[in-house]
Amino acid sequence: MLSSLVVGPSTVSAILVLYLMLGMASLGAAFKTRAAAHSQLRLQVNAWWLIFPLVTLSLLFYPLGPALLALLICILALRELKRHHRGVQRHFLINCITVLALAALLSWRQPLFATILLPGLVLLQLACFLFRKQTGRLLLLLFFSTCCGISFIIQLMHLPFTAETKVAWLFYLFALTALNDIGQFIVGKSFGKQKIAERISPNKTWQGLIGGILCSLLASVMLGSYLQLAALPQLLFYALLLSLGGFAGDMLFSAAKRFLGIKDFSSLIPGHGGILDRADSLVVTAPLLYFAIYFSHQGFSG
């Protein structure tokens, strides 16, 4: 099926508005940092011109596009984690590739098993890590968690909606996750004073968290209403859930970085770090949105 028959006009309009907002942000960052061409702020804003087109292409080539995007994130995550593994590389790679193949197969063909088996593997790795706090165990836990969380991008495509609605929900997920991160960053940088957990993530403040929640609430109501995805109470609930989930994902991966003694997982994305520094929120928000929609739909259909 042609992408133009899958991506609805409302979703296309919303994507264009997002690009317009990004363009305005780029101009603002360029003006503010005109004396420093390689400032952190300019690098972070400009990096979204790499991220947004990848997400857009994945939506345009639905259903293969989102699946390939999920696979790309997991492969890049494996590449980053492998750099920090000090043990036998072969054993680590075999374990990771096995889990990646299992996640891809189950998510695409057996979504019910994926929702049970993949989280089970994550819990098993978590238990192993808590029992023996080894770097190798932590890296496996991070990879298992990434595969499990990102696989729910594919799970969302199994929900009982039209293809056009599924694409709209995927766009909603990506947009809310990104805007929550951006809202937390901007408000935290501008007004942040009270640290939440300075030893884990020094830049996280209560003001930033509240800013991210407010940004998510506004974006969810505007975007969800425009795309006709859900009623207002549900959109408010989804916004709060994804905002807190995104924050939790960021904190969990930050704690892992403190354990590993690193600032970023890599320098793949200028101004952001590695793929795991950018996708850490998505690892949590994707399954949260899937289950929220699933149980809401079950309740209405029942």
Rank of each mutant, 00 (worst) to 15 (best):
S4N: 05
L5N: 13
V6F: 07
G8V: 01
T11V: 14
T11D: 13
T11Y: 07
S13L: 10
A14F: 02
L16H: 10
V17L: 15
V17A: 08
L20C: 14
A25G: 08
A25H: 09
S26W: 13
S26D: 03
L27K: 12
A29N: 07
A30T: 07
R34I: 04
A37C: 04
S39I: 00
L41V: 14
R42P: 00
V45Q: 14
W49L: 13
P53W: 00
P53C: 11
P53Q: 08
P53L: 01
L54T: 08
V55S: 02
V55F: 01
T56H: 12
S58G: 11
L60G: 09
Y62P: 09
L68F: 15
L72S: 15
C74Q: 13
C74N: 13
I75A: 14
L76S: 03
L76R: 03
A77L: 00
A77P: 05
R79F: 14
E80S: 03
K82T: 15
K82Q: 14
R83N: 14
H84W: 15
H84N: 11
R86Y: 05
R86F: 02
Q89P: 03
H91Y: 14
V99N: 04
L100A: 12
L102I: 02
A103K: 01
L105T: 12
S107Y: 02
W108K: 10
Q110N: 10
Q110W: 15
P111E: 11
L112K: 10
L112V: 13
F113H: 04
I116D: 08
I116R: 10
L123W: 12
L124N: 07
L124S: 10
L126E: 05
L126S: 13
C128S: 09
L130S: 12
R132K: 14
R132V: 07
L140Q: 12
C147S: 14
C147M: 06
C148F: 14
C148D: 12
I150T: 12
I153T: 11
L156D: 09
M157V: 02
A163Y: 09
E164L: 02
T165W: 01
K166A: 10
L173N: 09
L173R: 10
F174C: 05
A178D: 03
D181Q: 10
Q184C: 05
F185S: 08
I186H: 07
G188P: 04
F191W: 14
F191G: 06
K195Y: 01
K195D: 04
K195W: 00
I196C: 12
E198A: 12
P202N: 06
N203F: 00
W206T: 00
L209A: 11
L209R: 03
I213E: 11
L214Y: 09
S216C: 08
S216G: 08
L217Q: 03
M222I: 11
M222L: 15
L223Y: 12
G224K: 01
Y226E: 04
L227Q: 05
A230W: 02
A230N: 07
A231R: 08
P233K: 04
L236V: 13
A239S: 15
G249L: 11
A255M: 13
K257H: 06
R258K: 07
F259T: 13
G261D: 11
K263M: 02
L268M: 08
H272F: 07
H272K: 06
R278P: 00
D280G: 04
S281G: 06
S281E: 04
L282K: 06
V284N: 05
V284H: 03
L289D: 14
F291W: 15
I293V: 15
Y294P: 00
G299C: 03
F300C: 04
G302E: 06
